[in-house]
């Protein structure tokens, strides 16, 4: 089962790197927001892999708590970013109409 843990954690690191790359390279707001969420999901993968303590012992609750908090933060931050993005788009359309 150790290999599964490494696979999961390793996949998390790959996701982190991919998300980071996408965030830095792509200009459109929506792609940046999705990229940030992928980066975050990568970190959550790593944390979930850490929590594994063998098949007998229950998983470590501390990394799980970190992931839960991280998800709440990611959702609210994404909402705020989308809201600001929508406001920006409205302003731009208004400018164009003038």
């Amino acid at each position: 089962m150790l290999t599964a843990q490494f696979l999961y954690g390793g996949a998390g690191l790959v996701l982190f790197a991919l998300g980071l790359w996408s965030f830095l390279v792509h200009e459109p707001l929506l792609r940046k927001i999705i990229a940030l969420n992928i980066t975050g999901a990568g970190v959550f993968h790593v944390l979930i892999a850490i929590a594994y303590r063998g098949d007998v012992a229950p998983p470590d609750p501390v990394p799980h708590a970190l992931v839960l908090t991280g998800i709440v933060v990611a959702v609210s931050a994404t909402a705020l970013a989308l809201m600001l993005g929508a406001r920006l788009q409205d302003a731009e359309e208004e400018d164009r109409r003038r």
Partner: peptide, 16 residues
Amino acid sequence: LLVGLLGSISYLLGVA
């Protein structure tokens, strides 16, 4: 906001 989020995700990976 976006830059700040990137900063805290990087921080969180360090914590992990």
